[in-house]
């Protein structure tokens, strides 16, 4: 494992921890899109179908369990927890996320490395992860006061994707036959979706002003 990959995983883990901190301690999910969280839960459930069949490393299995457990518990919190549920911006979080599922699934059926159940589901999870942030970005645009934790959460998620690209570049030059167009292109699309957010995040940080996205 190279440094970019480890840093990417750690940033991903940190993003989840920041979100759990907000939800668990402050009992608030204001500014967080339930739609995006539901998509992430589907992403991990369809990607980690191999968790009990293919053992890669203890690290790998543990991280998979963490991402599965955290994504489903976040959805549970926002939907079911008495206090957290009250802070959910339901009227603002209106992205039709179900409309992302079918195109991603059809694309996975058409464009994949191998036409098997596990492989198609894995590819589906990559396509879906690429666009899963969209409801969250739309909600951010509509939020007048983006709190620090929400801003940091989205920043860490974007950083995780950027670091994965560096990891692929590194692996391409250090490992033989390491060419994987499907994860690379979907990962690149996913990272580009954060470009706009990054711009305003750094601007607000530089000018020491509150983060706000233009509508």
């Amino acid at each position: 494992m190279n440094i970019f990959r480890l840093a990417g995983d750690m940033t991903h883990l940190a993003s989840v921890l920041v979100l759990l901190l907000k939800i668990h301690t402050i009992k608030s999910c204001a500014g967080i899109s339930l739609k995006t969280q539901e998509l992430f839960a589907i992403v991990f459930a369809s990607r980690y179908l191999d968790i009990f069949t293919d053992f890669i490393s203890l690290y790998n299995t543990l991280m998979k369990l963490i991402f599965l457990g955290s994504s489903f518990s976040i959805v549970w919190y926002i939907r079911r927890h008495k206090l957290v549920r009250r802070s959910y911006d339901k009227d603002q979080d209106t992205f039709r996320h179900y409309f992302l599922l079918l195109p991603c699934f059809i694309l996975a059926l058409l464009i994949n490395e191998k036409f098997t159940f596990k492989e198609v589901m894995w590819t589906f999870s990559l396509y879906l992860e690429a666009v899963a942030i969209l409801p969250q970005l739309v909600l951010l645009q509509r939020t007048k006061n983006i709190d620090n934790l929400t801003g940091q959460y989205v920043f860490l998620l974007g950083a995780y994707r950027g670091l994965y690209i560096l990891n692929w570049i590194y692996r391409y030059f250090t490992e033989p036959h390491y060419v994987h167009w499907i994860p690379w292109i979907s990962g690149l699309v996913q990272t580009l979706l954060y470009a706009d957010f990054f711009y305003y995040y750094f601007e607000s940080w530089k000018n020491n002003k509150k983060l706000q996205l233009p509508a």
Partner: peptide, 10 residues
């Protein structure tokens, strides 16, 4: 398995 090695990523 050649196409397995990207699956070590999360």
């Amino acid at each position: 398995d050649d196409d397995q090695h990207v699956k070590d990523e999360l």
